[in-house]
Structure formats: structure tokens, C-alpha cells
Amino acid sequence: MSLRTLALTTALTLAAPFSAAFAAATVGAAAPDFSLTDANGKTQTLSQYKGKTVVLEWNNPGCPFVQKHYSSGNIPKQQADATKDGVIWLTINSGAGGKQGHLDAAGAKAFIVQYQASPTAYLFDGDGKVGHLYGAKTTPHMYVIDAGGTLRYVGGIDSIASADKEDLAKATQYVPLVLAELKDGKPVSVATSEPYGCSVKYGS
């Protein structure tokens, strides 16, 4: 077995480490456009929201980190505050069929009702194309795109990596911070952070 591990390691070592599939979207560059179907069966594209600030949130309702931020009301509150301010909030599920957190349209609607969530739309990315395009690795994993279509923030939901609701009070919530700075025309003080959470459950 250790021989097998060694062989695997060697094989990986020979492969290029700069995985093209994770050539992630870059802060400061144009956010790549995409087209996905939402829980109402409607097609949603990023480009249709040009002129508005857009938040992308990677979601897996079965993930304990996502549950921490939903059952505490943290993400639903951020969604409500942002959308009230005219921000577009797109929640994206890149879980492949049969994996944890993969939802159908009815499941997504029930999830939104359960947590009184208010994203602009809940999008399905079951083949993981958009997740890979953006380099989404964890749930949650957050992206903020400004009105000009430039990616301004990539990273975690907040500053304390834990699955514990008790840590919320001490943590800096990055998305509201970035949204406030963009609104005030200020420079974005935290443009990247390391996301924490469950691995995105991509198909193989």
C-alpha cells in the first residue's frame, strides 16, 4: 500500500502542478461570464447584471460550515442587506449528482425557505464548469464583482476558520466589508483571504 502511495505521489509529481482546471478567476481582472439555470428554471448569466455589484456564494446545504452560517442567520442577513442595497447575490451549487448537498429545484427552494434566505437566485452547476472557472474550492467560497464586471474579492466568508457558531461574533465578515467599501468608492481593504469549509463536491 505504501508502494502504491509512493507511485501515486511520483505520478503527481511528474504532472504539472499548475492545474489548468484551477486557473482561477483573478482579483483585479474581468470576472468571467457564465450561464447557469436557477431554481426557477430560468437562465442566469453574469453579463445580464453588468452595471450592478454581484456576489457569488458557493453553497452545499449538507456542509457543516455552510450550516453554521445559515442556521446562525449570518449568510441570510448578509443576503438581505446586500439585495436591499441593489446588490445581486447568486448562490451557486457545484455539487455533482449523488454527492453531498446536490439539490434539485424543489430542494433549493425548500433550503431557501428553511433559512429565510434571500439570494437573487440559486444556481445549479452540477458539472462544476463554473466552479472550476472561478476556482471555487470550499463551501462557502465568496466572490464579489463590481458594477464594471471586475472581480474585487475572492475568499472566505469571514476571518475565523471554524465550524463553531460561537466564533461568529469575533470574526470579520468580509463580504459586507467589501460591499460597503465599493459603495463608498473606497479601495477594497481585503481583496483575498483563504476560504475555509468543506471541499466543493465536484464530480470526477
Binding site: 503527481l12 511528474l14 475568499g155 483563504e194
Partner: peptide
């Protein structure tokens, strides 16, 4: 440490008698 290099295995080459490990920079490198 986190936030320095990506977590994928590095490429390893011999160069001038030294082993040289090449990592992708972490997306969160500051």
C-alpha cells in the same frame, strides 16, 4: 504554513546538484 504555496505536489528537478522544488504560488499569498 498556509497562504504561501498551493497544496498540489511540487515538481521536483535536479539542477546544478541541487533539488529544486517548484510550487504554484498560493492564490492567497500576500
Amino acid at each position: 504554513q498556509t497562504k504561501v504555496v498551493a497544496n498540489a505536489p511540487p515538481t521536483i528537478a535536479e539542477r546544478g546538484g541541487k533539488s529544486v522544488l517548484t510550487f504554484a504560488k498560493s492564490d492567497y499569498f500576500t
